[in-house]
C-alpha cells in the first residue's frame, strides 16, 4: 500500500503536499506535514477533544488526570520510547499502512474510505498542524 507523493487536504486548510517515499523494505517514510514545529500544548488539547474523535476516546495515558479514558487501543505511556517520531507520524496519518484491518481511524487521509458522510467528505479528521501538534505531545511520553 505504498503511497508516493499524494495531495492531501487538511480540514479547512489549504492543500498541502505530503512528501513521502517508499523505502527499500516497503515501509513508507513520511516527513513533517508542516513547516511549523508541533506544539505539544495544543497537541494535548487536541488529544483530549472528543469532538475531534481523539486519542483518549480509545487510549489511556496514566500521567493525565482525565477521567474516563478509553481502553480499546494500547496505553500511550512511554509511546515515544517504543516508537520513532517517524513511525508514530505514520500511525497517526493512516495506521492502515501498518495493519490494514486496524480499528484506528486514519487521521490524515481521505483515501480508500466508504460512504463518508456529506459533512466530512474530502476532509481529514485532523489538520496537518494538528497531526504535528499531537505528535509533539506524544514524543514527550517517554518511559
Amino acid at each position: 500500500m505504498g503511497f508516493k507523493i499524494s495531495l492531501a487536504l487538511g480540514a479547512g486548510y489549504a492543500a498541502i503536499w505530503v512528501a513521502t517515499s517508499v523505502l527499500s523494505d516497503g515501509v513508507t517514510a513520511i516527513y513533517a506535514l508542516t513547516n511549523t514545529a508541533g506544539d505539544p500544548e495544543n497537541g494535548l488539547l487536541v488529544l483530549r477533544d472528543s469532538s475531534k474523535a481523539s486519542c483518549l476516546i480509545c487510549h489511556n495515558i496514566a500521567s493525565l488526570p482525565d477521567r474516563d479514558q478509553g481502553r480499546i487501543g494500547p496505553a500511550l505511556d512511554g509511546v515515544a520510547t517504543r516508537y520513532s517520531e517517524h513511525d508514530l507520524r505514520l500511525r497517526l496519518i493512516d495506521a492502515r499502512h501498518i495493519n490494514e484491518k486496524t480499528v484506528m481511524p486514519p487521521y490524515f487521509s481521505t483515501e480508500n474510505l466508504f460512504r463518508v458522510g456529506q459533512k466530512w467528505q474530502g476532509k481529514t479528521i485532523y489538520t496537518a498542524q494538528e497531526v504535528e501538534d499531537v505528535l509533539a505531545f506524544l514524543m514527550g511520553l517517554e518511559d
Binding site: I72, P106, V116
Partner: peptide
C-alpha cells in the same frame, strides 16, 4: 465505513466490554 473507517463489528463484535 465513514471518515473514522469503522465497521459495526469493529466495536460491537471485537471490542464489546471495552471502555
Amino acid at each position: 465505513r465513514g471518515q473514522l473507517n469503522l465497521s459495526c463489528a469493529d466495536c460491537h463484535q471485537d471490542h464489546w466490554g471495552d471502555r
